[in-house]
C-alpha cells in the first residue's frame, strides 16, 4: 500500500514539475491571436541568459510588448534557463533549432558553448542574432547598444568625474569568465591609462562579485581593507554598484569612495538619491531586444542590412556595422535627476 502511495506521490510531483514547466512556457509564449496560421508568420525564439531576474524580466516584458505590437507579422517565444547556466541555455537553443524556428535571438552565457548549435541553426537556414556576444562567429549579426570599448570608456569617464580624475581604483566583474564584463573592464582601464594619468589601478586582478550584491558588498569591504586609499570601484555587473554602495554607506565613506557599474535603476534608486552613488551606467536592454527583433523581421523579409540602416528605436536610427556587430548609440547615464523616469 505504502509503495503505491509513494508511487502516486512521485507521479504527482512529476506532473507538478511538468505543469510548472508548461506554465512557464505558456505565459512566456506570446502567441498571436491566430496562431493556427503560423505558417505565414516569422517564428522567432528569444533566449535570454536567465529567467526570473529583474534585468531579463524587463527584457522579457519588452519582447512581449513588441510581440503584441507585431502579432500579425511574427510569433515570438521567450524562454531561457532558470539559472545562469551555459549548458542549460544551449539545451533550450537546441530545442528551438529542432522545432524549426525562423529566427534565433539570444544573449549567450558562454559564447564559445553556443557556437556549435548556432552553426547547426545557420546550416538549417535559421537567422541567428545575438547580443552581448560580439565575439561569436556562427551568427548573422550581434546587436550592441555600444561596443565594449565604448561602454568601458563611458563607465570610466563617469567614474573619473566622481573621483576628480585622480586616485586609486579597482575593477569588479560579475564572473571571471563573463566575456563582456571583462572587455568593459579592460576598455575602462585603457581609457584611464590614456586620459587620466593620475588614476591608478591598484589591484591588477579582477575582483569577482559572482553577480551577487552580498558578495559585491563583502569584496568591497575586503578591498577597502587592503587599500586604505581606495577611491573608486569600477563595477560591471548590475549587482556591483548596489553591493559596493551598501559597503560604502555602512563604512561611512560616502563622498570618499565612489562606485559605478551597469545597474538597474530600481536597485540603485535609493543610493542615487542619498548620494552614495552619483551615476550608474545603463542601456535599455528592452530597446536592444526590440532592435534585434526588428532586425530579424527585416532579414526574414530579405531586406539588405548595411551601415546607417534605421532599426526603428531611439539610438539605433543609423547604426554602425563592424563586421557582424551592429552598434547603436544607446548608452544611458542614470543619476538622481533622471532615475525616476525609468520604470524598471
Amino acid at each position: 500500500m505504502k509503495k503505491i502511495i509513494a508511487l502516486l506521490l512521485v507521479l504527482v510531483m512529476a506532473f507538478g514539475l511538468i505543469a510548472c514547466g508548461n506554465n512557464n512556457a505558456n505565459t512566456d509564449e506570446t502567441k498571436g491571436t491566430e496562431a493556427t496560421k503560423g505558417d505565414e508568420k516569422i517564428k522567432i525564439a528569444f533566449v535570454p541568459k536567465v529567467e526570473g531576474q529583474a534585468w531579463w524580466d524587463y527584457v522579457g516584458a519588452g519582447v512581449k510588448a513588441w510581440a503584441e505590437e507585431h502579432k500579425d507579422v511574427a510569433e515570438v517565444v521567450y524562454k531561457g534557463p532558470t539559472e545562469v547556466d551555459a549548458a542549460a541555455q544551449v539545451a533550450i537553443m537546441t530545442d528551438f533549432v529542432n522545432q524549426g524556428v525562423d529566427v534565433l535571438c539570444f544573449s549567450a552565457n558562454d559564447p564559445n558553448a553556443c557556437e556549435e548549435i548556432c552553426k547547426q541553426a545557420r546550416d538549417k537556414g535559421i537567422i541567428v542574432i545575438s547580443t552581448e556576444s560580439a565575439t561569436m562567429t556562427n551568427i548573422d549579426y550581434d546587436v550592441e547598444a555600444f561596443n565594449d570599448a565604448g561602454l568601458g570608456a563611458f563607465l570610466m569617464d563617469e567614474l573619473a568625474k566622481m573621483m576628480g580624475e585622480e586616485g586609486e581604483y579597482i575593477t569588479m566583474v560579475g564572473s571571471m569568465t563573463m566575456e563582456s564584463h571583462n572587455n568593459w573592464a579592460d576598455a575602462a582601464v585603457e581609457q584611464a591609462e590614456a586620459k587620466y594619468p593620475n588614476m591608478t589601478l591598484v589591484e591588477d586582478k579582477r575582483v569577482s562579485s559572482d553577480s551577487d550584491a552580498e558578495i559585491a558588498y563583502n569584496r568591497t569591504k575586503e578591498m577597502i581593507q587592503k587599500y586604505p586609499n581606495l577611491k573608486g570601484i569600477l563595477g560591471t555587473s548590475s549587482f556591483d554598484a548596489p553591493g559596493a554602495a551598501r559597503a560604502i554607506d555602512e563604512l561611512g565613506l560616502t563622498g570618499k569612495v565612489f562606485a559605478i557599474s551597469v545597474a538597474m535603476p530600481s536597485e540603485t534608486r535609493d543610493y542615487l538619491k542619498s548620494g552614495v552613488l552619483t551615476t550608474v551606467g545603463l542601456w535599455d536592454p528592452a530597446v536592444t531586444a526590440k532592435v534585434m527583433l526588428n532586425l530579424a523581421v527585416k532579414m526574414a523579409k530579405g531586406e539588405t542590412i548595411e551601415a546607417g540602416i534605421d532599426l526603428g528605436e531611439t539610438g539605433y536610427e543609423a547604426v554602425k556595422i563592424e563586421g557582424k556587430v551592429i552598434i547603436g548609440d544607446g548608452a544611458l547615464a542614470i543619476t538622481k535627476d533622471n532615475v525616476d523616469t525609468f520604470t524598471f
Binding site: C20, N24, T27, E51, G52, A54, D57, T82, P242
Partner: peptide, 13 residues
Amino acid sequence: VSMGLLQLREITS
C-alpha cells in the same frame, strides 16, 4: 513552484 507556478520575482528597492 517558486519560478513556474507562482512566478515570484525579484524585490529590490
